[in-house]
């Protein structure tokens, strides 16, 4: 008993000392708070579990980088960055292999450019219409439909590109081969319109009404207000939406794997067949590759390139959208 009371005294003394040493303007935390917490081990356990689940996201991110780097490191040791970046042919599975990423980058760039040429203007038009002209009722109906469009599985768009869009284009462009980047790019463009429209519309709706009122009061029409006042004010948000759309187009796999052909070619002619980074990965993965072979490593090297590209675009979009949020 003596021992206990000595300890209690010591604890009191320490507590008092702590109280004195606390800065005057910062009140000590009430002791009770701690006691309640300590009394409920289950609560602590639950919080730890929740925290662990949240940390999963970090874990997954790290494992993506770790797996892509560790599985492709053999590839880069074998090939070297120089050949990877400068060679103009990509034939890692041939008897006499070449490892230049340029043709795949070219195919990706091409489909993305075609997609953007369609989705950029149309997505922007639709966003301006929805944000500045459409009634609230129309918006309520149209936005869910756009969401439905974004929910269509990409393999269905691939079928549509190969067996409907390409034959239609062939009627217009004589001599168009059955596989071409034009039809794949156009269909990807349709796919990314909902993203671009929805995000650009959000950006324009965030522009304060005072700006619109100012322009209208000076005699601007609604179109002039939309194009010369609202759109510039939302420019960075709209740019962010475009960049996110581009990032989607770059990462799209099924449409290009089905409709664009699978021959890596260094061409910027959208009428030609070409392979993108994603189509190459899908094509090689369809065959049976021994673990650790150069072909197996090459899809990870291609995947790493893809990840880096999309990461750059996403960071750019994030940075742009944050800048736009800070403006008002």
């Amino acid at each position: 008993m003596r021992n206990v009371s000595w300890r209690a005294k010591k604890r009191t003394r320490e507590w008092a000392l702590q109280q004195i040493s606390q800065p005057m303007n910062k009140p000590a935390r009430p002791r009770q708070d701690f006691r309640v917490r300590r009394a409920r081990p289950l609560e602590r356990l639950i919080e730890a579990g929740l925290q662990l689940s949240a940390l999963m996201a970090v874990g997954i991110t790290i494992s993506i980088f770790w797996i892509l780097i560790s599985e492709s490191i053999g590839f880069f040791q074998h090939v070297g960055f120089g050949r990877f970046l400068t060679q103009t042919r990509w034939t890692p599975l041939f008897a006499n292999p070449s490892f230049g990423i340029a043709p795949l980058l070219c195919g990706t760039l091409l489909t993305t450019l075609v997609a953007l040429a369609l989705a950029g203007p149309l997505g922007f038009l639709a966003a301006v219409y929805l944000s500045e002209f459409a009634s609230a009722r129309a918006r309520e109906i149209i936005k869910p439909i756009l969401e439905l469009l974004a929910g269509v599985p990409t393999v269905i768009y691939g079928y549509f590109a190969l067996l409907f869009v390409t034959p239609m284009l062939q009627a217009v462009i004589p001599g168009l081969p059955g596989f071409n980047t034009l039809s794949a790019g156009l269909v990807i463009g349709v796919m990314i319109i909902p993203y671009i429209t929805s995000l650009s519309e959000d950006a324009m709706r965030a522009v304060p009404n005072a700006l619109r009122d100012g322009s209208l009061a000076l005699g601007g029409t609604r179109l002039e207000t939309a194009l010369s006042v609202v759109a510039p004010a939302a420019a960075s948000g709209i740019a962010g939406a475009f960049v996110l759309g581009i990032s989607r187009a770059v990462g799209e796999t099924m449409v290009v794997a089905i409709a664009a052909g699978q021959q890596p070619q260094l061409t910027l002619d959208p009428r030609e067949p070409a392979a993108t980074i994603t189509a190459f990965i899908a094509q090689v993965a369809l065959g049976d590759l021994p673990h650790g072979s150069i072909g197996y490593q090459s899809i990870f090297a291609a995947g790493l390139t893809l990840l880096v590209i999309t990461l750059v675009f996403n960071l750019a979009a994030f940075w742009m959208q944050r800048r736009f949020r800070e403006a008002y």
Partner: peptide, 22 residues
């Protein structure tokens, strides 16, 4: 965690396939 979640949302789906394969 927030950066990781935002990043994961934007990773192309085929990259998840590579993660799964490896």
């Amino acid at each position: 965690v927030e950066i990781a979640v935002n990043n994961l949302a934007a990773v192309p789906s085929i990259v998840y396939g590579l993660l799964a394969l490896g």
